[in-house]
Design a binder for these strands. Structure first.
Length: 474
DNA sequence: TTTTGAGTTGTTCGA
DNA sequence: GTCGAACAACTCAAA
């Protein structure tokens, strides 16, 4: 434990919250005056996508405001974390640096370098679990290897001790007065230029989201009160508000998975919600942890097939088809509605994510990495583990993946999960005049100013099945 | 040790 | 219209 009189640095990363923040909590408990920082590091790792940068701006502004209410501030540094964390710590004579762990390869490598640099200066570095239910290395099968099947993984995780209860947000905090040090690359939030200017494409995102910790809590409260009951089936309806919409808050840590876990458990115990709904939602949190476990054990999850036989998949190269998919001009209404929702709001309903991903990888036979990259750039919740894992899952190349013959029929999916066509009507206004009986079959109306399907479903399905059959079995 | 059964999210075909 | 089978291969744990 560091010297109580020396300042303690809290290094915020994907944990931009005050409540249930183990690193912040421990730093506050250490008694030293706090220095809260965020390092915007473009020198290492995969650059954030456009939508994620937009979200990050709001999340940083919100955290700064919340710290200011307690008499402090969030300092921003721009540059290589391993260089400037140590430089800052030396500059202020810090007794320690506290942070919550991350699980992507680049992040872990950076943290290792920072830890080494601090150790060389005899400065304590303490890390905590702030973003998973269980650490990825603690949920293993009986032979000590990581799980490759979700159900077995989750059964084992559930049998472990429940994640500890969420920590309270600290009240008034002692902050270290920060004299400006010209040797350090402090920047203002606006200087980082995380939000788009010319052109400003973020209008739809602003209309859809509040990027604050308070909004995260409010989303959770609303979901517990209105969404959790009936979740198991309502979650599949993109025309309804049946999902929690917590994903971007979780991505940037404005709410913690443990806060959600305990809130849902409490709702279950109160008996007002069917246990099946609670279990189903908790399993979604389980998939998030499972994805982190997969990423931890395979850091190149976003670029390398988990099932290596997919390296031989005869993906097509077709830029115009890819472009049509990206812009929501495939001629399949449910696919186009999803892609346009994504473009407009930075988010897409989960059921529709599966449909558009299946369409890209099976109907268009385009490499899942194209989809992963597009989502990385356009999703406000773009997460290094979940995004990669879910794309591989749909493509069939991933852990516990969908079988090759599971090819969504976009018309049937539309009719089943958007039965009145309201979702399509909202995002594909060209089709808004069509009645529910035909809205998922746009060909039925020759007057619609809307593209013809870029592939025939039956032919595309056969092509995808043939392509899968060429793969050598391991 | 070996065997067996089950495993997030489907679709199509033919009886 | 309804219903069951077929569509792989592999992982994991229980028997």
């Amino acid at each position: 434990m560091p010297d109580r009189n020396r300042p303690v640095i809290v290094w915020f990363r994907d944990d931009l919250r005050l409540a249930d923040n183990p690193a912040l909590y421990a730093a506050a408990a250490s008694g030293g005056p706090l220095v809260c920082i965020y390092v915007y590091d473009e020198t290492a790792g995969r650059p954030l996508g456009g939508a994620a940068k937009w979200w990050l701006h709001g999340a940083l502004a919100s955290l700064d405001k919340d710290l200011a209410a307690r008499g402090g501030q969030l300092l921003l540094l721009r540059g290589a974390a391993d260089k400037w964390i140590e430089a800052l710590a030396r500059s202020i004579g810090a007794g320690g640096v506290f942070w919550n762990r991350r699980y992507d390869g680049d992040g872990r490598a950076a943290d290792t370098r920072v830890k080494a640099a601090l150790k060389a200066q005899n400065i304590a570095a303490e890390s905590f679990n702030g973003s998973s239910l269980h650490e990825p290395w603690t949920v293993m099968n009986q032979s000590g290897a990581p799980f490759r099947i979700f159900t077995a993984y989750w059964r084992t995780a559930l049998a472990k001790d429940a994640p500890s209860g969420p920590l309270p947000a600290p009240g008034k905090l002692p902050f270290h007065p920060m004299p400006p040090d010209p040797a350090l690359p402090f920047v203002s939030l606006d200087t980082l230029a995380l939000e788009p200017r010319t052109p400003d494409w973020a209008g739809g995102l602003r209309a859809a989201w509040q990027r604050t910790e308070e909004a995260a809590r409010s989303h959770l409260e609303t979901f517990l009160a209105q969404g959790l009951n009936g979740y198991a089936s309502a979650r599949d309806r993109p025309d309804k508000a049946g999902t929690s919409r917590l994903s971007p808050y979780l991505r940037f840590g404005q709410i913690s998975v443990r806060q959600i876990w305990h809130a849902v458990r409490a709702a279950d115990a109160a008996g007002k919600t069917a246990s099946a709904d609670c279990e189903k939602f908790l399993a979604e949190l389980g998939w998030r942890d499972f994805s982190y476990s997969l990423l931890f054990h395979q850091p190149d999850l976003a670029s390398r097939n988990v099932r290596s036989e997919f390296d031989a998949m005869p993906w097509r190269v077709d830029d115009s088809a890819l472009h049509a998919w990206q812009r929501g001009m495939t001629g399949y209404p449910i696919v186009d509605a999803g892609m346009r929702e994504l473009w407009a709001t930075g988010w897409m309903h989960n059921r529709v994510r599966m449909i558009v991903a299946s369409f890209l990888t099976k109907h268009l036979l385009l490499d899942w990495r194209h989809g992963e990259e597009w989502f990385w750039d356009t999703l406000v919740d773009a997460d290094p583990a979940s995004n990669a894992q879910n794309w591989q899952w749909v493509a069939g190349s991933g852990a516990d993946a969908a079988p090759y013959f599971r090819i969504f029929n976009p018309v049937l999916q539309g009719e089943k999960f958007d039965p009145d066509g309201d979702y399509v009507r909202r995002w594909v206004p060209e089709l808004a005049h069509l009645p529910p009986t035909v809205i998922h079959h746009p060909l039925a109306d020759p007057k619609a100013r809307y593209p013809k399907p870029i592939v025939d479903h039956g032919e595309a399905r056969s092509r995808a099945l043939e392509a899968s059959k060429t793969l050598k079995k391991r």
